[in-house]
Write a protein that binds this DNA or RNA. Sequence first.
RNA 1: GCGGAUGUGGUGAAAUUGGUAUACACGCCAGACUUAGGAUCUGGUGCCGCAAGGCGUGGAGGUUCAAGUCCUCUCAUCCGCACCA
Length: 817
Amino acid sequence: MDYISADIEKKWQNYWKENDSFEPSEDFTLEKKYILSMFPFPSGRLHMGHVRNYSISDALARYHRQQGKNVLHPIGFDSFGMPAENAAIKNGSHPKGWTYDNIDYMKNEFYALGFSFSRKREMATSDELYTKFEQSFIIDMYEKGLLYREKGMLNWCPNDQTVLANEQVVDGCCWRCDTPIEKKDMNQYYFKITQYSDELLDDLKELEKGWPKQVLTMQENWIGKSNGLAFDLLFDDESKAKLNSMFESFDVFTTRPDTIYGVSYTALAPEHAIVTYMCENKLLDEATIAQIIKMKNTSSIDRQKEKAGLPLGLNVIHPLTGKIVPVWIANFVLMDYGSGAVMAVPAHDDRDYDFAKKYDLPINAVIKAKDAESDVSEKAFTDAGVLFNSGEFDGLNSKKSQYNIIKMFEEKKIGAKTTNYKLKDWGVSRQRYWGAPIPFIHCEDCGLVMEKKENLPIALPDDVEINGEGSPLENHPTWKHCKCSVCGKDAVRETDTMDTFVQSSWYFLRFCASPETLKNTAFTKEEISYWMGVDHYVGGIEHAILHLLYARFFTKVFRDLGYLDFDEPFDKLLTQGMVLKDGTKMSKSKGNTVDPDAIIAKYGADTARLFILFAAPPTQELEWNDSAVEGSHKFIKRFFDRASNVKKTETKPKIDHSSLSKEEKTARKKVYEALKRSEEVFKERYTFNTMIAGVMEAVNALNLQSNADVWSEGYWILASIMEPVIPHTCWDISNEYFSLNNLTKQEILEEVFIEDSITLGVAINGKNRGEIEVDLTATKEEILTLAKEKVKKYLEDKTIIKEIVVPKKLVNFVVKG
RNA sequence: GCGGAUGUGGUGAAAUUGGUAUACACGCCAGACUUAGGAUCUGGUGCCGCAAGGCGUGGAGGUUCAAGUCCUCUCAUCCGCACCA
């Protein structure tokens, strides 16, 4: 029978659909596996990155199903978001229609690839029920004080006409459209993620077993915890008078209190309150004010190009020496880190050094290397060292003095040990239409109030005009008008919608809901405690910070709200590498994409899956190679054709190993080696390429013999091993020859690994010179005699100094002369 | 600058604890079958060399009977963060 991929694949896809083959059981006494791939945005069609992502998770899901586990392998769509609106603006389509059409199309693509998803748990985050539950959680979070509204300087993308979270600003530009962001003073809703900074950082330890180190490090850096000293710098009397006695002091933070005797100036961020006061009250001359305004309006990228600043004509008093220290304004001081002000120690900080050199400020060295002279004439000395010119702390090392200096500040009550984080609260409101509305109401009398839970969902209106100008909800004639949930008076709805990352922060919990639960509640605690945590989470490294941090945050919040009782959502994280063509990432703009549909049409889904899992380990980049795809296709055909050597059987044949020929024994050994490899791969290594190579070797070995029982046993096992990779082909073979009985856990037979003789390498001075075959029972002396005979010609005129026999591996002679 | 990785044939890549480097595949070469071959099958293929032999895992050292694997230094590439005080 010829291998016709289209027929076979269609046949089994229909079979799986009709038989609900991949629905998880509701029996919570079974051992479970929750296998999840990061769900896609419904952009229109699948790309190869998707195919790789789901090929990996599908292989895991199918393997564990064979092992008898209760497997949850769901699929959904992260369906809110800007592209739907952009398409609306471009083609006049409606975001809803566009989104759901795309979902339908992509679902078909998924099932054409044979992915074993639970069809009954399919969902999209733009479904009204999803919005309903999410809005309910938002209200819970507000009541807990984890959501607040505040005016602030926000990241504004002028192209997308919306605010962005800090995490969504990449190199000063919008993460989505690359437009340089602007700062805009606006009201915004924030999740208090900073309340969980320490826990988000500390719990990374729990993840060390299951997450790539790289991701852990990225999260750690993003949270950016640093310990140091915070203290007040007091103005002198003259400066206080200049400031109309409005300010006594300002607060600074340092991680290097050991350098404090080297302070030679201090610097404020251009946005600092004192600077703002001075500008507003014209306490500086006009030219200076103009320069400050210019500095503030400079983009963050330009601000990094060169250090710049101005003296403010103010002085503070050094807290330890009592000396007068000038106050500057400096463009490198960031308003949103620490207090927006720094003590400057040019001798021991590169930035302070550059600035001091430029403006000719004093450079006072106070730390030197242990056994060297201090030299800061060329550059700052930023290492730890020994203190000098530091009063009572002279001679102490950096570490010791940091401790002592902080202690002294605390005793004198002029400063305190302080921890700072780079992590900021998560701004979640977006001025867009295609998102989940934030369920709040603005009432003239009552202020900001929550919508009543019984009124949820606050759904989006369908009749909107989307033209890219302003917020479509804000511009809608009637939608925003409502009654206050507290006093009943006329009021207005919040027209901002939520960041789409909010939806992806809890979708993995929603998947735990049974088809029954789905209709009524978000999920039940019982279901969640059974299915969570996710055993394998598969997705792209690009989500290392944003999505994974937010999802971890939501899990902790839901725990504190009583919805669940664990700390971390994802036990194991597998970050897949990119799919490349011609050395660069596949992308439409580069025109180097390969369309999955075309590959399926030409070779079939199994070929695409096999190539993707065979060409490289999943965490590594994958270079697309047309002829290697061809090769994968050839293997499947050969695998299918050679199945004709198999004798039909309902059970695995029993074979008397001792009666077999050498070729037959080798074939069996290779088959069972492949099985061993498969277990390691699925349990620990996930290097599917090596497992597939093992199967290929086994097929090659089977082909060198003609014992029908050996063929049958071989295929019984190999079709089971390969089913997670090329499911259609394997189900077809299994059905034809084994009545599908072999797609279960396979037992390893140790007898096939026992051999009567073994091959040993013979080396001289570590260099391989030949090999000998010896009896299993051979003694060391016998082996040595045989080995010496084998490499006789290399031993002439030489003296053997040492003879090493490594059992079952090799013999090594150390020779001289 | 800080952090994380990766360097092995013409190519994608194997080598799980130090033990015969290059499994498996792609490509290439040769042969068979064929009207034909971009199908299928068989064999060959690390490099230099006619051979004997020598050399080979980015580079330089080291430990060891034995190093792709361990240690020191170094080079290159990729990724992430970045004026975070």
